[in-house]
């Protein structure tokens, strides 16, 4: 479990979780080669993603999470991410964008929902915006001494 005091700053580490290899490789290519400031790790299902988040090898800042995956789907993964207290920005990438699905994703803690097929440029813009907001929010935490936090765990 990661503490919430860690700051977010470039280069951002993004975990791309999708069972479709084409999408994983596209995200790696685009975020690492076409724009600056990202390092991309990949996982092909929710279980592997959680293992990466639990490990000490990488500090993940954001997760791009597919919903329909074998072994452990995106919703269950999102639920576990919140349950285990991983301090990451989660953006859901899904081929299905029904009202119910979007609401469920936001309910479980996703900060954004992007429909597939997607524009890598728009996705990157949304990713940067969410990371910047999260960084700003975390910077303001020490000043808000009245708000109980998990800092110091």
């Amino acid at each position: 479990m990661r503490g919430s005091s860690r700051g977010i700053e470039p280069p951002y580490t993004v975990l791309a979780v999708d069972d479709d290899e084409s999408i994983r490789s596209l995200l790696v290519h685009y975020l690492e080669e076409q724009v600056e400031g990202f390092v991309v790790e990949t996982a092909s299902n929710g279980r592997a993603a959680l293992e990466t988040l639990r490990g000490d090898d990488v500090d993940v800042d954001a997760v791009l999470l597919d919903i329909s995956m074998p072994e452990m789907d995106g919703f269950e993964t999102l639920d576990r991410i919140q349950e285990e207290g991983h301090d990451v920005v989660v953006i859901v990438l899904s081929g299905r964008d029904g009202e119910e699905e979007q609401l469920q994703a936001f309910d479980l803690g996703a900060l954004d929902f992007v429909k597939k097929p997607f524009s890598p440029e728009v996705l990157t813009a949304r990713l940067k915006l969410n990371l910047a907001r999260e960084a700003e929010l975390r910077q303001s935490w020490p000043e808000r001494s009245d708000v109980p936090t998990e800092v110091g765990e």
Binding site: S22, L26, F118, S119
Partner: peptide, 12 residues
């Protein structure tokens, strides 16, 4: 054909 399935926008 594979990438056209997943892309939108200028790259598409």
């Amino acid at each position: 054909l594979d990438d056209l399935r997943i892309l939108e926008g200028r790259q598409k």
